[in-house]
Simulated assay, not measured.
Amino acid sequence: MKLLPAIRDGAFDEWRRDRDWRAEMRDKRARGEKLASEIPSSMMRCVCGVVFDSWKPDESYQHRIHIYAAQTAGGAVR
């Protein structure tokens, strides 16, 4: 088969992962479930790597300095 040598290594695995992911999303929608990105959350990850609840001031105050410094420096907040 002349087509196979032109396909890069791992392309079939990548296609299978994408196919399975899309099927999972369709199944969730069919069951009426929300996707993870549609569920609101107050959890944030600071640029220092710590995950905290932004609705709890005691947890978030210490990370504001890190976040504001990254924004000032033009860094992306993750």
Rank of each mutant, 00 (worst) to 15 (best):
D18K: 02
K56F: 07
A70Y: 04
L4F: 02
G75M: 04
Y68L: 13
Q71H: 05
D58M: 08
K34R: 04
K28S: 08
E59L: 15
T72D: 06
P57F: 02
D53S: 09
M25E: 11
Y68P: 01
H63F: 07
D13P: 03
K56H: 11
A69V: 14
D18T: 01
R19K: 05
A6M: 02
R29I: 14
S54E: 11
K56A: 10
A69M: 10
K56E: 13
D20C: 01
G75K: 04
M1E: 05
L35N: 08
D20R: 00
F12M: 01
A23G: 04
S41L: 12
M43D: 02
C48Q: 12
R26M: 14
R22D: 02
K2H: 02
D53L: 09
R64Q: 15
R78I: 13
Y61W: 04
E24T: 01
I7L: 15
P57S: 08
F52C: 09
S60L: 10
K28T: 05
Q62T: 12
E33F: 09
H63Y: 11
P57W: 02
W15Y: 06
D27N: 12
E59K: 10
V51D: 10
Y68F: 14
I7S: 10
R31Q: 11
I67E: 12
T72Y: 02
K2Q: 03
E59Q: 15
Q71T: 07
A36V: 09
C48G: 14
D20A: 03
I39G: 07
H66R: 08
T72I: 10
Q71V: 07
K2F: 06
W55I: 14
R26Q: 14
W15N: 00
W55P: 01
S54L: 12
P57D: 06
G49D: 05
A6S: 11
C48V: 13
I39N: 04
E38I: 07
F12W: 01
D20Y: 01
A6Y: 07
L4Q: 06
K34Y: 03
R17K: 06
R64L: 15
M43N: 04
R64P: 13
A30Y: 06
R31T: 11
D18V: 02
A76L: 10
V77L: 06
Y61P: 10
E59D: 13
E38W: 03
L35A: 12
T72P: 01
R16G: 00
A70G: 06
E59P: 12
D20P: 07
R8D: 05
D20M: 00
M44T: 04
R64E: 15
V77H: 07
T72C: 08
A69L: 10
Y68V: 14
K34F: 08
W15K: 00
Y61G: 12
Q71N: 13
S37E: 12
S37P: 08
G74Y: 05
S60Q: 05
L3H: 08
R8H: 07
H66L: 11
Q71S: 13
D9R: 04
